[in-house]
Design a binder for these strands. Structure first.
Lengths: 152, 152
DNA sequence: AGTATCCCTATCGTCTTGATAGAGAATGTG
DNA sequence: CACATTCTCTATCAAGACGATAGGGATACT
């Protein structure tokens, strides 16, 4: 299960915008430096977010980007979907599009369960939550078990 | 969050082997036909699983592959890790290897929570569970909400 | 007018997925 | 023993996605 560089960069850029919500537009270059993301790559990501209606752009001096809605109303899942398509995909398809036969028949409900558990995190957390370092309680609890931080 | 074709195919092949655990070795060709997986691609996947100690191969007539351990003791996560590396990765790295700064600092605990929730499914379900279409109760419950089956 | 910034297109290298081919090693059967 | 079968390994090829870089065009502020 891989989260793409594009998704990671997009969320980080969105968080920078969330943190500066009331300070006017932020330049690509400023986000790129703050988060260590390749400048031109970030530019195309912000463009995707603009086309997806997540951010608003402003050209010219004092231009840049700002969120199109309050950070409290945008979830991390919203950002990932705009730049990467479906939140969870198997072989490039969404789980409901898959068909399995024989002993693999119950693989479909398994992927559905995985997706439900991923949604339970990413669709419940907003940009404001992350930017304020204040995750919802039931999610914060998942990070408190030491084994959550270790690789198997 | 993408599950690769390789991982999907590997689990399906492992399920075919689980279902025929006591019938002697199964040929690549038989699995390929039963699951509709490209023959030569499957060959390299089974090879990865052999090198990972998950299956045992047998050459010659009446040869093929069989599981190296009881299906009850192999989880879906075991299979995915052998063919694809870490269960969850961000930009190709495991979450604990990542460092975030500024308003993105709480992104790390968020990815950790996602990984914990994915593990809670894939490390808890064995090949025997899926092959018998009998998922553990707490996982089966996730698939019973109708909204788990719909795309947003 | 001039400068800053977004916007668009093109290009490049790598990885993934998938197909195909061929030679070598091991095993069971006649 | 000879042979057919099947895994094993290597190699190549091609389309597509992913990650990243470069240059020039359009727009808006000063």
């Amino acid at each position: 299960m891989r989260i793409s560089a594009k998704a990671d960069y997009a969320v980080r850029a969105a968080l920078e915008l969330a943190a500066a919500q009331d300070d006017g537009p932020i330049k690509t270059e400023a986000i790129s430096k703050a988060q260590g993301v390749p400048h031109k790559f970030l530019e195309s990501i912000l463009n995707d977010m603009r086309r997806g209606g997540l951010v608003i752009s402003q050209r010219g001096g004092q231009g840049g980007y700002r969120l199109a809605a309050p950070a409290e109303s945008i979830t991390v899942a919203d950002v990932i979907r705009v730049v990467d398509g479906p939140l969870v995909s198997v072989r490039g398809e969404r789980p409901p599009e898959l068909t399995y036969t024989g002993p693999a028949e119950s693989l479909l409900p398994l992927w559905i369960a995985v997706r439900a558990n991923v949604r339970a995190i990413l669709s419940e957390v907003t940009l404001a939550d992350v930017a304020a370092a204040d995750l919802p309680e039931h999610i914060h609890r998942l990070t408190e078990l030491p084994e959550a931080w270790t690789n198997p």
